[in-house]
């Protein structure tokens, strides 16, 4: 089960509202490589994972990603507080404002609502671990791109933290591939699907 912890993993303290930037950062809330997809991907993959290390790692990274979802939501929320009329009417933000006011809605920076079509749960452990390594790299690149687009030091402080976590998660998924491989047929690790054939 899950229970709520009433604190963020890392502090989010954004001094200056900036709705334009909020719409960019929002992509890591509900975009194709965002934290919602990350957490749901790993939570859903757990059921078909053999071996205790893989079950544990997916559970722990998925749980951390839910904390990152909350942090990204906090950035977006704080960037859209106390908006002036001119900020609501900014052509970059007005289309979001008319649908969601100053709320946090899971969509990409381009406006596409979050979709499970952006992730995969294939049911083969090596396939899913490689999917996750790719997912961590895609999220890292997205954070790199946010750092290029943003000059707000308060936002970038949190973005750099989240980006570093993607690198660590990539490392752990890579190690998980090795732990899995050691348990398979060394002459042909693709001999069968250990999720259903062991």
């Amino acid at each position: 089960m899950f229970s709520y912890e009433k604190k963020l993993q890392y502090p989010v303290k954004i001094a200056n509202p900036n709705p334009q930037l909020a719409k960019i950062v929002l992509t890591q809330y509900g975009g194709p490589d965002g934290e919602l997809g990350a957490s749901l991907r790993y939570l859903s993959q757990r059921y078909s994972m053999p071996f205790d290390e893989l079950k544990g790692l997916l559970t722990d990274i998925a749980t951390e990603e839910l904390g990152h979802l909350e942090m990204v939501g906090a950035i977006v929320h704080q960037l859209t507080r106390n908006m002036k009329d001119s900020q609501m009417k900014d052509p970059a933000f007005a289309p979001y404002f008319v649908d969601h006011t100053a709320a946090v809605y899971p969509q990409s920076a381009g406006g596409t609502p979050w979709s499970a079509a952006t992730m995969q749960v294939k049911g083969d452990p090596m396939t899913d671990l490689v999917e996750n390594m790719a997912a961590e790299q895609k999220a890292r690149t997205t954070y790199d791109n946010i750092l290029r687009l943003s000059d707000d030091p308060d936002v970038n402080d949190v973005i750099k933290f989240l980006r570093a976590r993607e690198v660590v998660h990539f490392q752990r998924f890579g190690e998980a591939c090795q732990l899995l491989r050691e348990k398979l047929n060394q002459k042909n690790v693709y001999y069968m699907n250990p999720s259903i054939d062991l």
Binding site: Y143, D157, K160, F161, A164, R165, V168, Q171
Partner: peptide, 24 residues
């Protein structure tokens, strides 16, 4: 470690030298 986003120097690989120096 928390401001770098990792406890491990070997995994501390910042983008374009943008290193967090924040003092919480």
């Amino acid at each position: 470690g928390i401001v770098r986003g990792t406890l491990f120097p070997g995994l501390d690989l910042p983008f374009m030298g943008l290193v967090n120096q924040t003092e919480l």
